[in-house]
Nucleic acid binder design. Structure first.
Lengths: 210, 210
DNA sequence: ATCCGGGCGGGACAAATGTCATGGCCGACC
DNA sequence: GGTCGGCCATGACATTTGTCCCGCCCGGAT
């Protein structure tokens, strides 16, 4: 005989968020909803799939920027490994490219960390009932921005150039010639319409292309 | 006749945090503590002092990175304009320089956003009772790291060089000659022991010097 | 009175960065 | 089979960046 005293079946939620305080606060608040139960909390991206396999949540609430594995990549993995689990992305940045990638990864919803906490439980319920939860303005922005024009290699080089790495550093890190690296950087700078690698990185990040 | 049903006087808290969801969640949780009352919530640094003057909180819980005015600057202002209000800094980054500046600004405590939510209410009570709340390991790091070696101008130039601005941009923005800008950048790079402006910025940020 | 240290700028030079043209290699697509 | 695009690489070149000189003006400390 189940020890659950509630009549309605409660919604099982997996919570992935690296900031301990926010994770704890959200878990407590969600746990107070009568029909919601937080069955797992993780602080790293590479723990998401394991936790989902173990606890079989109905909804996974995923941050994007996580140590280990991105929440977007985790969403894609969940799609195949735990297909019954619906994914709700919860992120600081409403970048067009993030939303696009979230949708391509099969996410059912996309929330930004601004906006009131009250939205959260509501979004979880709507997502579970089959709705897709996305801010319309953000969706429009994502559509009008168009897809990522950068090739995989150009993204690699931009990512590797973060933190002030020199061309030589990047070349060594990616096992490329220095000339090749400069060519990729140059073309990324061209495609982003910027003047140097820093601006190109900024722009690519802003768009959610990295 | 006061409508407050509790016997004990409750602790009046001002909450300054730009991320809406975290702000809302913390406000709800703190409000559930029997002896704590959130009397004001703000999402911008330049609203802190006004709100404190209006609502006369016992404790101000301040994020550092805020739009408008830094939580550290706001703490310094509170020190003079609302001296009875104790300041508890709540930040994502446990940078040594942040802790140092927080203490110099008269903060009574310094919490990082990792670590459990449960610490928060406890820290508020301890701060109010006169204790200073600081993670000992972080305090040691701040002490051993030494003070900021950069001059005010060097900081300005580093800040202005964020986002990929060229020397010409920085010079124009700060009304300086390009030679001067390059000299400041060079000396900042030297003092940080780095190889270029990007690394210098990274390091200076890491240390909390900006 | 002298000596810092900081703010500001100039000039010269080496190194890093960004651009461009060119070419080979591959796989996908028509 | 031909074409196109991505990946990788060279070499030459202009521009930017970083370094090291030098100098001037100030205000505060000794």
């Amino acid at each position: 005989m189940p020890r659950d005293h509630r009549r309605a079946k409660s919604i099982r939620v997996l919570l992935a968020e690296d900031q301990g305080m926010l994770r704890g606060a959200l878990a407590l608040l969600l746990g107070m909803e009568a029909d919601i139960e937080v069955v797992a909390q993780v602080g790293a991206g590479d723990a998401i799939v394991d936790a989902a396999l173990t606890h079989r949540p109905d909804v996974a609430l995923l941050d994007i920027e996580l140590p280990g594995m991105s929440g977007l990549d985790a969403a894609a993995e969940l799609r195949t490994q735990v297909p019954d689990c619906r994914v709700l992305i919860l992120t600081t940045f409403g970048r067009p490219g993030y939303l696009r990638r979230a949708m391509e990864a099969g996410a059912a919803g996309f929330l930004v960390k601004d906006g009131p906490v009250e939205d959260l439980a509501a979004a979880i319920r709507r997502v579970l009932s089959g709705e897709t939860v996305v801010d319309p303005a953000l969706a429009a922005a994502a559509l009008s921005a168009g897809p990522n024009p950068l090739t995989a290699r150009e993204c690699d080089v931009l990512k590797a150039s973060a933190g002030g790495a020199t061309v030589a550093d990047i070349a060594a890190g990616l096992h490329l010639s220095e000339s090749t690296v400069r060519n990729y950087l140059s073309s990324a700078i061209g495609k982003t319409g910027t003047r140097n690698r820093m601006e190109a990185m900024r722009e690519a990040r802003q768009q959610g292309w990295l």
